[in-house]
Design a binder for these strands. Structure first.
Lengths: 360, 360
DNA sequence: AAAATTTATGTACGCGCGTTCATTATCGCT
DNA sequence: AGCGATAATGAACGCGCGTACATAAATTTT
């Protein structure tokens, strides 16, 4: 027994028409008499005909795939982070509606611009790049992609000075509101646990932090970003819970000069809470904590974590939409008079009890 | 300016050989003189030749894609659950090494056996199905797939009586050890918050629970599974945190007859903890809680949650490996003398403080 | 009623590659 | 040198589909 693959030819024969007509009927192209259409569809139904997607892609010279590139971080299960999960969800929802498929690719560790091959080999029609960092190599690779005219979109990362297609969130405003909230709650000695500098968010959040603190007259707005901030208020981790836990120890040394910490993501914020707790402090009481992402984790800590909600899901949807309905199907990689798309979505502070103590 | 696509033909011309030879060199097939090989590779390098993956797939009649089917649950961001994330990570790691790509597909809501089309249209060479449930429609669809000879693998779900390729975990043993641990800690009045019955895990865990409780002489091993259990000890939710929270209220009504709860996943366990806390009880002290999955969440609750660790990551890897190195590349969908692969991986209890109180 | 459209369908080709088969170069041996 | 065997290469085809072009049928216009 061998499963015969039904082809267009057989449908044509059964329907008594040419192969071209079958093709036209199934693709809804050109004028077709109503009853030939019916005949073809009936024949296809009876024979159980399914167009061969491989042949279609080949003939159309389009894969029908949207590539999603994920960073390869050894030992880290990348999907397990709220951030990626949500974005992927959004992308998935969008491609689903647009008839595309989603090709997941893990960036190869050593290869510099591995994603160029994806386009060259026609495996994808467009790409969404997640977790990129602003390094010289990365910039170069992206510029090469742009140069070659391959449509791609960055999510949650901005490359200053470039015209890349980007879907970002307003992290500066998010940080500003988070810190402002702490100030309004009466906290003054507010530290900031930032993320790695190669992510544009880090600079954004720093700006927001400085803006809020300057407006409150706590730090000198005239000085440069970092110089105005007392060193014991500025620290950084790598977005892991562990790095937050470690940072708590460092902050603890200056605990008299700190009554609140704003962290660049929830995982670090949760690490901070655990760290402070292990040092005998009570998060939400002795020290206020605010995180970023408003992940699931923020709801299950004790006390629940105040956090900056970022619309990752919508950002994923938007990125896919931009790529699949502009640059690809039509043919104008840039619009808005050549400025390209630089979408920025707004964040929203979700206040929970980790930041509602009564500071001295 | 228009980007010319370099084809095999041009490489052949530059290297002064035929197209067939170019093909042979790049695919390492047949005997080739060392210097022609060099010539071809040089020409390819100079011209920047990349084989067209679409054409390759078409000619080979293999897509090179491993499909991963995810359940479509409206309003639920499926990736955000630890369970799926980990499995996808494992699959991703495996396909990466095998030169395959990973095509993510969300099962369409209405369509009964939508994945049949994926095979028929040759979009995928094999499929991993996640989040399937044991319903008549699903069984039928899977049997049809099997009948048609399409290689697929189920992860974390077992269909009793079928010979499907499955990678499951030993949830019965996991539940057994979890309950036994509670018994050893001195708890006797142990309730069980199960998941929906259409998941095979639910029955597995129920068996494990009953086995442990029977061995301890607490319930009658002779009676049927459910009859032996006092009704106030058996409840079920839908794996969401909320359903755990709600269950806490029900258990609370019989709080004098309950001093521990074993939950079928961490999210429900966390919901239980929050629910009991809101009712004035202290999880880990007034009532012991044990979950399943050993997700990230288990580490950040207060108290940290004892949980049954399930090797989802390895399960994903294994599923991909089975499909991509047996059924697909070679051609024997079943081995072990026709029993098919039914892999079962072991679980491991991770004890934390949510289950180390001192029960009365 | 014939010519000029418009509508509907068929014919033929190519997309870029893998691969079979035929052909030629190379080698080992008597 | 001659022969058979093997190594190396080229010529040719087909995979299943989209589509440009040619053609035939139906419709409108003159």
């Amino acid at each position: 027994m061998w499963l015969h693959i039904v082809t267009r030819k057989e449908v044509a024969k059964m329907a008594g028409v040419s192969e071209a007509t079958v093709s036209r009927v199934l693709n809804n192209v050109g004028p077709i008499r109503e009853d030939t259409k019916r005949k073809v569809l009936e024949a296809a139904e009876i024979l159980g005909y399914y167009p061969n997607a491989l042949a279609q892609s080949f003939a159309r010279r389009r894969s029908g795939n949207l590539g999603v590139i994920l960073p390869y971080v050894p030992k880290v299960h990348i999907f397990s982070t709220y951030y990626f999960s949500e974005i992927l969800n959004g992308i998935g929802e969008q491609v689903r509606g647009l008839g595309y498929d989603m090709l997941l690719i893990f960036r190869k560790p050593g290869v510099e611009n591995g994603y160029m091959d994806l386009f060259r080999s026609h495996k994808v029609d467009a790409c969404i790049l997640l977790g990129t960092t602003d390094t010289p190599a990365e910039r170069k690779a992206l510029k090469a992609l742009e140069e070659a005219g391959h449509p791609f979109c960055l999510v949650n990362q901005h490359f200053e000075g470039e015209r890349f297609l980007e879907v970002d969130a307003d992290h500066e405003q998010g940080a500003y509101e988070a810190v402002k909230h702490l100030l309004e709650e009466g906290y003054r000695k507010i530290a900031f646990l930032n993320g790695p500098p190669e992510y544009s968010n880090s600079l954004d959040r720093l700006k927001g932090y400085v803006r809020a603190m300057s407006e409150a007259g706590i730090i000198n707005p005239a000085a440069s970003l970092t110089e105005a901030i007392p060193p014991e208020w500025l620290d950084s981790g790598n977005y892991s819970r562990t790095s937050g836990y470690e940072a708590a120890k460092r902050f603890f040394r200056n605990k008299d000069h700190i009554d609140a910490v704003f962290a660049a993501n929830d995982r670090m914020a949760i690490g901070l809470m655990q760290g402070f707790r292990d040092l005998g402090m009570h998060p939400g009481k002795d020290i206020a904590i605010v995180g970023c992402d408003d992940s699931d984790g923020a709801r299950i800590t004790d006390p629940p974590l105040t956090s900056v909600s970022v619309p990752f899901y919508q950002m994923g949807m938007m990125a896919a939409k931009l790529l699949l309905t502009d640059s690809v199907s039509e043919d104008h990689p840039k619009q808005d008079g050549g400025t390209g798309h630089q979408i920025q979505m707004s964040t929203k502070l979700v206040v929970r009890s980790s930041s509602r103590g009564n500071p001295a």
